[in-house]
Amino acid sequence: MLERKPRKGRTEITFVLPADTPPGAVSVVGDFNDWQPGTHTLAPRGDGTRAVTIALPGKSTHSFRYLAAGDYWFDDDSADGHDGANSRLHT
């Protein structure tokens, strides 16, 4: 799930997943972090989910995917669209 907070000239995107699905560490990787795993790792929240927030430029489009333990790549069903194997989001 994606949560969005518009800010002046940028949008804060919070990437949210259930606490244990998939199990193990999960990071969001995309063109905004040069597809580097571990740069934006989701952390537990008090509501039983895990999340990470990234500030992205306003009025831009980005490709991303999630990477879980065991080299398990997956997409976000709540993304704005898909471009091949990647999820897409618009700020």
Rank of each mutant, 00 (worst) to 15 (best):
G30P: 02
P23V: 11
A25P: 10
D76W: 08
Q36I: 12
D20V: 13
K8P: 05
N86A: 12
D80K: 09
G30C: 06
H40V: 07
F74Y: 09
T53Q: 07
V26E: 03
T91Y: 08
P22M: 06
P23C: 06
D71R: 13
D34G: 13
S78F: 12
P23Q: 11
R88M: 15
R88Y: 01
G24W: 08
M1G: 15
H40F: 14
R10L: 06
H90K: 14
G30R: 02
L56T: 00
L67K: 11
A69Y: 03
G58L: 07
R45N: 14
L17H: 06
S78G: 13
P57G: 12
W73L: 11
D83Q: 13
H82V: 14
P22Q: 02
A25H: 07
D76G: 05
K8L: 13
N86K: 15
D75T: 15
P23R: 08
R10P: 00
G9N: 14
G46F: 03
Q36S: 11
N86M: 13
I54G: 04
R7F: 06
D80T: 06
K59H: 12
D31T: 08
D47T: 07
A51F: 04
T91P: 04
T61W: 00
R88W: 07
R7Y: 01
L42D: 02
R4C: 12
V16Y: 07
G84E: 09
G70D: 09
T14K: 12
S87Y: 11
I13R: 00
A68L: 02
R50E: 01
N86H: 15
T11K: 03
P22V: 02
T11L: 02
S60K: 09
L67C: 08
M1E: 02
M1D: 13
G48H: 06
V52T: 07
T91C: 00
H90M: 11
F15K: 02
G38M: 00
S87D: 04
G38H: 01
G58Q: 08
G46T: 10
D20W: 04
G30H: 05
D76P: 10
H40E: 11
R45T: 09
F15H: 00
N86V: 12
Y72Q: 14
F32S: 03
P57T: 07
P57W: 02
E12V: 15
P6A: 14
R45A: 13
E3I: 10
A69R: 14
R88P: 00
L2E: 02
V16L: 04
L89M: 09
G48Q: 01
P22S: 04
T41F: 01
D71A: 12
G81T: 10
D83T: 10
A43D: 04
G84K: 04
R88H: 10
T61V: 13
G9E: 11
G48I: 06
V52A: 05
H62Q: 07
D20Q: 14
S63F: 02
F64S: 00
Y66I: 05
F64K: 05
R50G: 01
D71Y: 07
K5N: 11
V16C: 06
G24H: 09
W35C: 10
S27W: 04
T41P: 08
